[in-house]
Amino acid sequence: MDVSGDWNLIILPRVINDYDLDFAKEVMSLPEGKTMIQCYQCSYCTASCPVHNYWDERYNSRHFIHLARLGLIDELQKRADVMWRCVSCHKCTHRCPKGVLVEEVLKAILKTMAKKGLIDEYPSKKFDKFFTESVLEYGRIEDGELLFGWIEKQGYNVVKDPILKKPIPFLGETPEWLKQLVMKPIKSMNISFLVLNAKHMLFHPRTKNWNKFKQVLRKVVQEEGGLT
C-alpha cells in the first residue's frame, strides 16, 4: 500500500529534444540584437553584472544569450521573472571582449519573446510603455506627472483636479515613502522652483513643432509593435 500520497506522479523528461533556431534569427534581425552571434560564453559580462552579483544569480546575461542562440525557449521562460531586471548599467557591453552589445542583445531577446507571446508583460515593461507614451505625446517628460501617474497606474487612488485632470500631489492615497521622498526637498526648496514645478505639473512642458514628428514616431513604434 502506497502511503506517500503522490503515487500518481509521472515525471516528464528533462531532455532537450530540439532547438528553435528561428528564435535566434529573429533576435538577430533586430539592429540591437545583431551582435549576439559574437558571444563565446566567457562570462565576463555576467561576472561584471551587479544584478547577477547582488540580486539573483539566475540573472545571467551570458546564459540568456546561449539559450536564445539555441532557441531553448522553455529555459528562457523559466527565467522570465528575472530577465527584465537589468538596470542598464552597461558594464556587460562595456567589458565584452567580443564586442557583443550585451545590454542591447538582452533587450532584443526580451522584445522577441514579448512579440512571440512567450513572456507575460513584466513590471519594467509597463513603466517603459508609460514613459514612452508620455514622450510620444508631449515630446518631453515631466517628473511629477511621471511619478504620480505611475502611482496611479499601480492602483493608488490619486485625486485629480477637475479641469485639467492632473493628479494633485498628496491628496488621495500616496504611499508613505513617496510623501517623505518628496516633502524633504520641498521643505527646503526655493519658492521659485516650487512654483516652476507646480506649473510643470499643471501645464506639461511640450516640445513645439511636435505634431508632425509625433505622427512619424507613432508610425515607427507601431511598426515595431513596441507599445502593444
Binding site: 531532455v15 532537450i16 530540439d18 546561449h66 539559450l67 539555441l70
Partner: peptide
C-alpha cells in the same frame, strides 16, 4: 549534456 544549460539533450 549542454553544460551551459545543465540539461540533457538529444538533438536531431
Amino acid at each position: 549534456e549542454d553544460t551551459i544549460v545543465q540539461r540533457p539533450a538529444e538533438v536531431p
